[in-house]
Design a protein around this nucleic acid. Sequence first.
DNA 1: CCAACAGTGGACCGGTGGGTCCAATTCCCG
DNA 2: CGGGAATTGGACCCACCGGTCCACTGTTGG
Lengths: 229, 229
Amino acid sequence: MPADAIRRAESALTARGRATRERIVSTAAQLMHEHGVAGTSLDDVRAGTDTSKSQLYHYFVDKSALVQAVVERQVQLVVAAQQPELDELDSLAALYRWRDRVVAVNSGRACVGGCPLGRLASELAEDDPQARAAVAAGFERWRERLTAGLRAMQARGELAGDADPDRLALAVLGAAQGGLLLAQTARSVAPLEAALDLALDGIRAHLGPGSAAVAGRHVPAGPSSRLGE
Amino acid sequence: MPADAIRRAESALTARGRATRERIVSTAAQLMHEHGVAGTSLDDVRAGTDTSKSQLYHYFVDKSALVQAVVERQVQLVVAAQQPELDELDSLAALYRWRDRVVAVNSGRACVGGCPLGRLASELAEDDPQARAAVAAGFERWRERLTAGLRAMQARGELAGDADPDRLALAVLGAAQGGLLLAQTARSVAPLEAALDLALDGIRAHLGPGSAAVAGRHVPAGPSSRLGE
DNA sequence: CCAACAGTGGACCGGTGGGTCCAATTCCCG
DNA sequence: CGGGAATTGGACCCACCGGTCCACTGTTGG
């Protein structure tokens, strides 16, 4: 995988070096999440990491190389943040727990920034083909986790046999992204909740014989849980 | 509404002036859709419109004032592009026609650029409060069109009485936005189709007694219509 | 027909951003 | 301990960008 050809991936890199590099990527990720890639100058990164210009170019050939590293980091963080729920995403109840987690995380930061990956996606998609590919791969990894869960549900008969887990997972991810974007714009979690709930309503429409609650209410509190504005 | 306090909204502005201003906004909108706001310099706009620097500042006090005008234009265009379907969006079949239209439009431009509003939203949300508000208002207008249709369905009993048209419309819009973003990133319309189909599956779960097809298939061709990659 | 004002052209400016360079310093390891 | 590589500091360069300014040209109505 040439993704790590950002610079000196082979050898070198002592413990100190790795720490510095990590500090740079971490801070850059934070800044780019809040102000966008274009809105984050290398000077901002330098100031925020207590490093010098030469160090940035010591660890990354380019600004775009730094961006690449940031993308990979965000993919890792985003997926990791949902690890607990994603690990056992194999029932409708689990999907709702995941929904709650996504809502809670976003709510916790007052809908600021939206999804880090989403922001990178829309900003880089048309400008940096390599970055676009990296983001796409990240979404793919995320989706695979959802797919795996749906497939497990299907194996147990909770999901109908003719349902397409890949396609459903893609749709659920889409609902999350769109909800996140609208939530960020409206500064309210309501759109996120609505989008995820409707997607899960859609999933319920694909339940199979293994589930006793096709018409039942797995939903926490119906359409009442509308917080935020 | 002080939204038009961009510059000389009151009087002045001859026919020629209006044409020039229009040309500037139109080109800027195009460029910003493709390259983002930050990625579009005033020089780019100048070059693309055969105008001079002074004209930009003659019609707009700021770059952000130009952005404001671009946002308003895009809102108008996006909603207008769906006028035919949005005008009679009052049945499940109409919703599917709308879905097909959205997919077709995006497919027609090879998923490049995604949704113009979505792009502006994620880029401006954290940097320009006024622009964020304008985009939010745009999404609101878009959503109202969807809400109106769902309300009509509800009045006819096709949609269940306890369904919340506002919330459902918000969710459908979210599905569209997310699908558009993933489609742009993956360069395939599949995510958009999947997201919209699942949302409409969700809507079907809220159908009322006035619809004879609660379990029926209003869907064009099931999950088979998967074009693009 | 000519004054007044909308519209236009384009040189210019200060700040900033990405990127280069080289010398100094620290660290690892034989 | 000593030398070579990893690491760091920061001055410097230049292109570009948003924004200013002023002189010029149409146009229009009294």
